[in-house]
Design a protein around this nucleic acid. Structure first.
Lengths: 199, 199
DNA sequence: GCAAGGAGTGAACGGTGCTTCAATCCTTGG
DNA sequence: CCAAGGATTGAAGCACCGTTCACTCCTTGC
């Protein structure tokens, strides 16, 4: 046994793996999930098709990771934006603005993450994504109730409904053109009222 | 030219076509869109695979019609339920209860119509479906504003957000088990507040 | 430099399921 | 009953892609 994987090789492997995920994300942001053949991803990563399979057992596994990565980034952005505010009202505003702003910035990616038809195994990851958003929001809602800024209510349910409303309001604009200028403020008001933020 | 299609034949053709759509709907309600191969649908309709293609140019066309039919039925049910009520609050309650009740009654079908990964061409039909719901709701919202039962707001946007909240709140329960008992009333309250129904 | 064995390659494979088509059956009007 | 022509059949065709694998290249430690 003369060959044993060394640090340098492991670093290169790691880099390849990351490059594959990044490439997949790029292809998805450009052509949607529909354009994401394994060959296209490999090509973008400057690797052979077969090499992808040295890092991921199946295409679904690769894209599960892609979705997980991209989703985490989105959730983080929203979490960070909310953390800068103090009242629940301001936090919800921050969430809506961040979510919509980012979605409209890269519409193709947002559509893929939110609504595009994908492999069922990848679709499962989407549910996790949405639940992650809901969890963040549920935390703020619960705290709002505790502080007396919001009336008593089921934070989980409220958060889920918020996420649904947000996503739905974005899907239309994403698939066809751009959102009207009133969309984001209108949505903010709507969601504030839904939660029972005192006017 | 001795043969010319007669009334009887045209009736039989029509019946076949309808039987194909009905069969597709049945298969979808049982096994989801994933289980809907053309062969399975034809089999259920007691026809040969090839016959399907004498009625629909492609599978996507067939399922576009299936979605259209099923969606119309759902929208009609909701419309009818709302029409029995007078105040906006009661109408929204009726919509939520009807929507959720029907969805939970045939969860596999509801999941297919709302969220299951489908062919992109069929997915387009889904957007129409959701917009149809939104249109119904937007009408009620607009009337509510006119009557002074609701504060001024963009009825389209509000309706879209309502539909999103409803759909999202149902997807969880549909994919895994049943809805908790508090879901429907909780959702109703949430949506009333969102619209600004006077408490 | 060399043997051992992992990493990388990409053309070929294979499964799935939509779609077609030549053969057959059925309907119609004479 | 017959000829014309549409309707039906279902097995074969076909395309598309994910996946594999025999081969080559590279890295390692002696």
């Amino acid at each position: 046994m003369v060959y044993r994987s060394t640090e340098r090789v492991r670093a290169r492997l790691d880099a390849s793996r990351r490059r594959i995920v990044a490439a997949a994300l790029e292809v998805m942001a450009e052509h949607g999930y529909a354009g994401c053949t394994v060959a296209a991803v490999a090509n973008r990563a400057a690797l052979a098709t077969g090499t992808v399979y040295r890092h991921f057992p199946t295409k679904a596994d690769l894209f599960a990771e892609v979705f997980r990565t991209a989703s985490q980034r989105e959730v983080d952005a929203v979490t960070r934006a909310a953390a800068l505010e103090t009242t629940v009202a301001d936090r919800v505003t921050a969430v809506v603005e961040t979510f919509c702003g980012r979605a409209l910035q890269s519409p193709r990616l947002a559509y893929a993450l939110l609504a595009e038809p994908v492999d069922p195994a990848v679709d499962a990851e989407r549910l996790v994504f949405r639940r992650a958003y809901a969890r963040v929001l549920a935390g703020h809602v619960a705290e709002g109730i505790a502080r007396g800024e919001l009336p008593p209510q089921d934070p989980e349910l409220a958060a889920t409904a918020l996420v649904g409303a947000l996503a739905e309001a974005m899907v239309g604009p994403l698939s066809a053109g751009v959102a009207g200028p009133g969309t984001v403020p209108g949505l903010t008001t709507f969601l504030h009222r839904a939660l029972g933020v005192a006017p």
